[in-house]
Amino acid sequence: MASKTPKPPSSINGYIVLPLQLQALPSFKEPAIHFLYLRRHEARVPTKDDARTLFAVNVPFDATEAHFRHLFSGIGGGRVDNVKFLGSRQHPTTTTTVEQLIASSTKGNNKKRKRDRMDQEDKAAGELPETWDRELHLSGSTALIVFVDKGSLEATTRALKLYGKGKLALWGKGVEGGKVPALGSERYLAHHTLCYPPSSTLQSSINAYLTTFAAAEAARARHLAQKRQEPDEDGFITVVRGGRTGPARHEEATVVAEKQKGKGHYRDFYRFQLREEKKKRVGELVKRFEEDKRKVQEMKERRGRFKPQ
């Protein structure tokens, strides 16, 4: 493939192609070049940071903020403020459910909104400890690189235009020597250790979470109780869960309905029922036979099913 294209295009589909030299490793000595695709960020919903943000495609799986900082300073670009990796490993906001609960129960309620802010603060405490020391990204994923200011971005763009004439930049230069957590067995050992956080840490995180959760539940119960009392503008009271005679759970209702079904009917009382039953049986037999025939035909098409070995 390489022989066909002596030189890769310098841009593709509006993206600047940024080839990066990868460090040859003792286990894999073949020289390898990584291609990063960059362009100015154009968000669907514009934000104030757009002007100083680059959109990067095909981010190396091990990229960190430090990597990009050193990369751009290495090629003479501007300073990176922060990097937002998109489509990386899903990081759940563990308290979403609580948040949602609260959000749904506190709409349009000023007092509750204040609580909400308090919850936000508690949230960090409710998080479980992280079990990886460094996040990796899916192969070929994207990132938003935010520079300190618009000027930095422009400086970078200029540098990128000049880039490629000389030597390729080395990916990961400047971050060696323990500036980012190492990969390899060390990473896995660290993970294994992180999986067992001290029980005190764990306990306090759980306590925080459960306190928040209990508070949210209580808030919600209160809200529902209130709703049960308040008629809407047409004078109707919305039926909501909870309360002494609240609506039954759906699953329970289905079970009961299932039980009720078929009670009090006789299937073999009238002659026509018997006749129909018989007809149905014969029909089923015929249907099954046709099905079998089709199956056998199918088997026949796969050779060897009817040939003794």
Binding site: N13, S27, F28, L183, G184, S185
Partner: peptide
């Protein structure tokens, strides 16, 4: 630029694997 296509970068991926494996991989 108009006709460029994307091809899987096998050597880069293998390099990535080597990077991830680090000391665990001999070759």
């Amino acid at each position: 630029e108009e006709v460029a296509r994307l091809v899987v970068n096998k050597t880069a991926i293998l390099n990535e694997i080597a990077r991830l494996g680090g000391d665990m991989i001999s070759r």
